[in-house]
């Protein structure tokens, strides 16, 4: 039996998903005796569609050579989703933290027609988690989003599935690799502006870095964790957010004199939702340098559990999406 997939968003992550699906076909056949086919892929301008299945390699080649994944797309993509037969929507279009953007509309459409949704799009999850989760339950389909927080770091499924019987007390973590890179460079004596410029030159920060350095990206992840792990009903705007732009060389030096570093920490608990720079003792897991994401989960039985992983990247994020797809296949098998 074939599992039909639509990929919404064919940028870095969408292309990574196509590549991983091609690479993992044998594994899926062996383990689930099923075939996974991409029946449609679209970006902001173009659409490729074939009910019999598209060749992932050709999709990648076309995107690479022309910047488009297919032919010019129809303006009403919700209608396209409504009229197309598929089982799973992989929604990886650019995030919009103010409205949820097109991604929100596509996720609603897919869930309404009874398709599973896998997304890393933080906007819809940070703004409309409860509505989307309830809709998925009502339609008896899965809404999965492992890659939305921490990229390849398996925090959501770990908390929801492996720690199902535990009470999670707090999650504290480095949820934005760009900020962590900047603060790590400041530890070495670089002023904020220079560390930011270096991050931009290395491709870690966007030309408009405010989404990262103002703490917005981390705050949307905090809201997602609060809803998914702590079963709260919050949105991005409920999170208290302080970014890293006010951190000075003097502050870094004073912290260093006390054997501490400053890191941007997202914190979630039953009564706390916060993103703020914090003082971390050197040697503590959260004093980590570089671009990795790291989280410490404090539970009532297991105590503190620390996990880390690459927070972004084409194949790393696709790996989180693939783990969600495997979970859907596993659930369908049972």
């Amino acid at each position: 039996m074939t599992l039909k997939i639509v990929i919404s968003g064919f940028g870095t992550v969408g292309q990574g998903v196509a590549e991983v699906l091609e690479r993992k076909q044998d594994f899926i056949k062996r383990r689930f005796h099923r075939q996974v086919r991409i029946v449609a892929a679209f970006d902001s301008r173009s659409l490729a569609h074939d009910d019999g299945g598209l060749d992932p390699e050709l999709l990648l080649e076309r995107k690479s050579s022309s910047g488009m994944v297919g032919d010019p797309r129809p303006s009403d993509m919700c209608r396209f989703l409504r009229e197309t037969e598929f089982d799973v929507l992989v929604e990886v279009s650019p995030t919009n933290i103010e409205t949820g953007g097109d991604g929100l509309l596509f996720i609603r459409e897919a869930l309404n027609k009874g398709a599973h949704v896998i997304t890393v799009n933080k906007g819809p999850l940070a703004l409309h988690f409860r509505e989307l989760n309830d809709l998925a339950k009502k339609k008896k389909v899965q809404l999965r989003f492992e890659g939305a927080v921490g990229g390849a770091m398996p925090i959501i499924n770990l908390c929801k599935e492996n720690f199902m019987g535990e009470r999670i007390l707090t999650i504290q973590g480095i949820l934005n690799g760009t900020c962590n890179f900047i603060l790590s460079r400041m530890d070495k004596g670089l002023p904020f502006g220079q560390a930011l410029k270096e991050a931009q030159e290395l491709g870690y920060a966007e030309s408009d870095p405010s989404y990262d350095i103002d703490g917005i990206d981390s705050a949307s992840k905090v809201a997602i964790l609060a809803n998914a792990v702590f079963d709260r009903d919050v949105t991005f705007s409920d999170v208290s957010v302080t970014g890293i732009t006010a951190i000075t060389e003097d502050a870094i030096a004073l912290a260093g004199d006390q054997n501490m570093v400053i890191r941007l920490i997202g914190e979630v608990s039953p009564d706390k939702l916060e993103v703020a720079p914090r003082l971390i003792p050197k040697g503590h897991p959260l004093s980590l340098s570089g671009t990795l994401n790291m989280a410490q989960i404090n539970t009532d039985l297991a105590g503190p559990i620390t996990i880390s992983g690459r927070g972004a990247g084409r194949i790393e994020t696709a790996s989180a999406i693939f783990s969600d797809l495997v979970a859907i296949l596993e659930a369908e098998r049972q």
Binding site: A246, T248, D250, A251, A253, L254, A255, D257, Q258
Partner: peptide
């Protein structure tokens, strides 16, 4: 209480333990 000594900056830093 420790106080940063850089005089040219308006943004001072102080550490309290």
């Amino acid at each position: 209480l420790r106080y940063s000594s850089r005089v040219q900056s308006r943004k001072k830093a102080a550490m309290m333990l």
